[in-house]
Design a protein around this nucleic acid. Sequence first.
DNA 1: ATAATACATGAATAGATGTTCATGTATTAA
DNA 2: TTAATACATGAACATCTATTCATGTATTAT
Lengths: 120, 120
Amino acid sequence: MLYSQTTAPICQDEDAEQLAVLKKHLIEQSTANRLSEVFKALSDPNRLRLISLLLENEVCVHTLEATLGMTQSAISHQLRHLRQLNLVRFRKEGRHVYYALDDEHVRDLFRQGLLHVEHG
Amino acid sequence: MLYSQTTAPICQDEDAEQLAVLKKHLIEQSTANRLSEVFKALSDPNRLRLISLLLENEVCVHTLEATLGMTQSAISHQLRHLRQLNLVRFRKEGRHVYYALDDEHVRDLFRQGLLHVEHG
DNA sequence: ATAATACATGAATAGATGTTCATGTATTAA
DNA sequence: TTAATACATGAACATCTATTCATGTATTAT
C-alpha cells in the first residue's frame, strides 16, 4: 500500500459511516486548548534553551543570563511566563532566586522532541 | 530532599565547575530553532484539531471543513503551513485532495502530549 | 459551453508574542 | 546609610500568526 493509513480515505459524500469514525478522532476544543498551551511553552527557541538549562538543575537567574546571552529582563519575562503556566518552580535564597523545571510532561516532551530533532 | 535535582543548585560565583556542567546541558541555537519549529506546529488549538483528524486517516479538505467547523480558507491556509513544514502529504484524486499526516515525530509528540493532558 | 464543486492563495487585519527600556524592590556589602 | 547586586515588572514596540475576504484555478456535471 502506498499510503499506510489504518483506514480508507475519508470523504463525506462517499461514506457516512466513515465520517462517524473520523469524528471520534477529533479532539475536544478544551483538550485542544490545553494541549496547545503545553506545546506553545516549547515553541520558542530561547525558551527552549532556557528550559534545557533548567531540565536537570536548579539555576539562578544571573547564571541563566550569563549562559544564555539574553538580557536579564528578557529572561525574567520568560520565567514569569513559565511560572504562570506552572512549568517552573522557584526558591529564594538570599539575593538569589533559583529556578527549576517543575513539570514532568514538559520534560518528557522536550526530551522526546530533542531525540527526534537530533537524530531523526 | 526537597528538590529532586540531579545536581546541586548552580550559581556562577559559587562554583565554576558547576557552570561548565551547566553549559553542557545548553542546546545549540540551531537545535533550538529546529525544535521550536516542531513544537510551533503543535501550538495552535485549531491546528491540533486538524492534526487529530489526519493522525490516522487520509481526509479530503471538504470533509475537514465539515468536521472542524472552520472555513475552507482557514483550513487551506493551515494545510499549506503544515505542507511547508513537510508535516503532511497530499494526493489529488479527481476534484478532491486527500491530506494525511506525514511525520512520525509529530505523531508521537501529539500522542504523548495528549496522554499527559487527558489524564496527567 | 456553462455552471457548480473542490481547493488554493494573496492581501488585509486583528490579536498574540518576545524583546527592550526604564524603573522598582529586596538583599547584601562597604 | 549608601552603594551595589539580583531580580521583577509595566509600557512601548516590532514582529509573527491566524483568520477573513475576495478571487483564482482545476475538475466534473449538465
